[in-house]
Design a protein around this nucleic acid. Structure first.
Lengths: 120, 120
DNA sequence: TCCCTCACGCAACCAACGGTTGCGCGTTTC
DNA sequence: GAAACGCGCAACCGTTGGTTGCGTGAGGGA
């Protein structure tokens, strides 16, 4: 019960801005704090802070070239994060289905023809 | 691209304490702020605040009985949240696999026998 | 070469959030 | 009726996501 989750990794992808950043980086292959901030509703500095967070949990890596600092996604680590999402989702899903089955069984045992709880 | 997500709903299940609360409520069927706080590493007041958040996004509903306030999970809404987790996970997963396939194709086209990037 | 621009990092500041303690109020219960 | 219980409200604190402002080092023309 209660799937084990790396809270740092989870909370890293928990932020909507960070998810959009990962989206952009995956689409473009790489990007800088400045280039990302141009396509996001926050300032460069805010983006830079998020990049620090993502870098700290290993979801992105940076390579400095001259005055630019290019970031790109670490696919392996993102795969791990995705796996955790799937894990939690699957655990809850299974439990919900179990509860639903039990509820239906009870209804059936009562011989009820009440159809007020068909789908969700 | 960039799966649509209800940010309020997502951030509601984003908090680790709130996930554990949902776990407990699902297991027990229902619970009060006090009963939950006894099994969590935070105070009753903190739990109460989280319950407000969960209630606001419709993940739980409360029924007051005397001096007690029983909370229980709204399965339908939780199912929606789970679906969103799955959606985001699937979107990223597909994108990662696409990137991986492209990378492998390039390697193959080069006739490379370099096995330094087999599995992650 | 010199200067201007660009990308970045650092610092200060602010609002929101998660958490705590303390207190008051209504409901049970003995 | 009084004690005990469950809850809500308010004040306070640290962290986090966001902003503005400024300094600095790398590039790219005149």
């Amino acid at each position: 019960m209660s799937v084990m989750v790396d809270d740092d990794l989870w909370s890293a992808v928990g932020d909507p801005i960070r998810r959009r950043m990962l989206d952009l980086l995956l689409n473009d292959g790489s990007g800088t704090a400045t280039s990302l901030s141009e396509r996001l509703p926050v300032t460069r500095q805010a983006v830079a802070k998020h990049l620090v967070v993502l870098d700290r949990v290993g979801l992105v890596h940076a390579t400095t070239a001259g005055r630019e600092k290019q970031f790109r996604v670490d696919q392996a680590q993102l795969a791990r994060a995705v796996a955790q999402l799937a894990e939690v989702g699957a655990a809850w899903d299974a439990r919900l289905q179990r509860i639903k089955r039990i509820a239906e069984t009870i209804q059936r045992r009562r011989g009820t023809t009440n159809d007020s709880e068909k789908k969700q």
